[in-house]
């Protein structure tokens, strides 16, 4: 303890290590579930789908997402924490709005990517996972994709960390690459949990691939690879435009932006 009760002692190390452990466990749980789904499930799921793997996918991803949240949230400073609800509302509103149109995109990760750019990969991942969980209160079908949303937030944070938001033309490229990962990641979830996609437009794309003779998993993966990279490229560009329009004072308030010079011209202070 420091001599004064009004001040904080230097930050505790033990608590930090426990949090790290939770984050790693969460990430490992998600990764292991994914590997199990892809590798250990060679049989085509249309020949009598194993409901065991559905439950496993659901619980593995959900557990991972919850561990991630529990590990990251307590370390997030209050100034970032208050942004997360705002981000979730943006995600949900845009996601619902786009989902109600006949566009084969989602645009449900604008808020997640925004947080990732302002506050880094860990906060981005937690926001993604929370987004899936909170949105599922209105639309339960998005629950299994919480882990995928966490991956998007994490990758967006990495992109920001390594300067891909300093130039406007780099943002959609980063988004495109993130989208490839996101598509490959979420396709097995859609296939094993729902046996398809939840939107009519995306469903039409899947059935087009099925008509050409693809297996269900590969049809869904191809659909995801058509939609996701484009979708994320759009989302990353939108977020880049948003953060460029923010007052410098607002952006410089975030240590992540100051430390890694996330935005061009933002001097470290």
């Amino acid at each position: 303890m420091s001599s004064s009760s009004l001040t904080l002692p230097a930050s505790g190390q033990a608590a930090g290590r426990n949090r790290r452990l939770l984050e790693i466990l969460g990430g490992a749980s998600i990764a292991a579930t994914y590997v199990y789904l892809v590798l250990a499930q060679p049989t085509d799921l249309t020949n009598g789908l194993s409901s065991g793997s559905t439950l496993l996918a659901l619980s593995g991803f959900l557990l991972g997402a919850v561990l991630l949240i529990a590990g990251v949230l307590p370390t997030v400073p209050t100034s970032t924490l208050v942004l997360i609800p705002v981000a979730l509302v943006l995600n949900i509103v845009l996601g619902q709005f786009i989902g109600s149109t006949l566009v084969p995109f989602y645009l449900d990760s604008v808020g997640t990517v925004l947080i990732a750019v302002l506050a880094g990969p860990a906060a981005g991942a937690a926001t993604g996972a929370l987004s899936g969980i909170v949105w599922s209160l209105f639309n339960p079908t998005v629950l299994p994709f919480a882990a995928g949303a966490a991956l998007i937030g994490f990758l967006a944070g990495l992109a920001a960390r390594y300067g891909l938001f300093r130039r406007f033309y780099l943002a959609p490229v980063a988004g495109f690459v993130t989208g490839i990962f996101a598509g490959v990641f979420s396709a097995p979830i859609a296939a094993f949990v729902y046996g398809g996609t939840s939107g009519i437009a995306t469903g039409a794309v899947v059935s087009a691939f099925r008509a050409m003779g693809d297996s269900l998993l590969s049809a869904i993966t191809k659909q995801a690879l058509l939609s996701d990279p484009m979708d994320k490229a759009i989302v990353f560009s939108v977020v880049a435009l948003l953060v460029y329009a923010l007052p410098r004072r607002t952006t410089l308030q975030f240590p992540f932006i100051r430390r890694h010079r996330v935005l061009a011209g933002a001097k470290t202070s």
Binding site: S4, T7, L8
Partner: peptide, 9 residues
């Protein structure tokens, strides 16, 4: 500099 603990402050 001291870091104020808002919860006590």
């Amino acid at each position: 500099n001291p870091r104020i603990n808002p919860a006590v402050w």
